[in-house]
Amino acid sequence: MTQPATTRRPDWTHRLGLLVPSVNTVVERDLRLSLPDPVSAHVARIPITRDTPEQLAALADAAPGATRLLAHAAVDSIVFACTSGSLYHGPGYDTAITERITEVAGVPASTTSTAVVAALRSLGLTRVLLVTPYEPWLDELVVAFLGAHDIEVTGTSGPALPDPLDTASVPPQAIADAVGDLGRAEGVFVSCTAFRGLEAAGILRERLGVPVVASNEATVWDGLRLAGRGPDAFPPDGYAALRR
């Protein structure tokens, strides 16, 4: 197990660590938009350029090496910040990734898919509309993963983009506009840490008046919970509704 290089603290009290897909250009932006004070965020990148089965499957194997470097920053928690990459092999795959991270860094860990399930449960959601940038085969994996956690996906929508750089270029308004009639759904889940779902979530909450969870919101929320930050640390939009 790698020991943190130092535990000295300057003027912040919590350090959040994230393992981010190398092609992702949205996570750092969302951290700037949402991270509460006094918290600092520290990122290590894991290699992927497209959402292919081969590259998604390889992400977990790259996590321990990136974790060793991230541990040098004496982070308080680490989240594997990729939704599809952390559920690629189905239920329990996220837990296996978390265990590998904790073994290396010696700090609490989570994954985005783990965090999403926790966030949806915290809001009491059992039926959700799913909005993603994924191709259909990847949507199916998300639906199956949520279903294994007793969360029913009542419908899916999104632009079906295999290139994460294209995913990042979709405006939040366009993401929100992909949501039509809620039907039986109790809320909405906007998936993918490379999708501007955090901004779209705010639009959808105002428009629909229902709970909305975005991947990056859940990622930050769970990482800060593990680092010891309570619900009072979060901004009022979105996070405040999430309970410990």
Rank of each mutant, 00 (worst) to 15 (best):
E140T: 11
D222V: 09
E199S: 04
T102S: 15
D37A: 11
V220C: 04
P38Y: 05
L123R: 03
A148G: 09
L161V: 02
A71P: 06
I48Q: 14
P136F: 13
G183E: 07
L165T: 14
L204T: 06
T154D: 04
I101C: 03
E152Y: 00
P133E: 01
S34D: 07
M1C: 13
A214P: 07
L165K: 12
A115I: 01
D232E: 15
P38L: 00
E103T: 14
R32W: 04
R29Y: 10
D76T: 08
A214T: 01
D11Q: 11
P231G: 10
S86K: 07
H149T: 06
P21K: 05
T193C: 08
I203G: 01
A227L: 00
T6G: 02
A96M: 12
V142R: 10
I78E: 11
L87P: 04
P64F: 08
L31K: 10
T52Q: 11
F234N: 07
D222W: 06
S169E: 15
P172E: 08
A194C: 05
H149S: 02
D94P: 06
L204A: 09
S40G: 14
A233G: 10
D11P: 08
A66I: 00
S169D: 14
I175R: 06
S22M: 10
E152H: 05
I48H: 02
A73K: 09
D177R: 03
G65H: 12
P172A: 11
T154L: 00
D61W: 03
L161A: 01
P236F: 07
G158K: 11
T25L: 10
P133A: 07
T112H: 01
E140L: 05
S215W: 05
A214H: 02
G17E: 01
I97M: 11
W221Y: 06
V117K: 00
L161W: 05
V116A: 13
L123C: 01
W137Q: 15
T2Q: 14
E152A: 15
T98C: 11
P10S: 13
M1K: 13
Y88Q: 12
E28Y: 02
S169Y: 04
F195T: 08
R100M: 10
L18E: 09
R100G: 12
A201E: 08
L242G: 04
V104T: 13
A194F: 02
Y134S: 02
G187P: 04
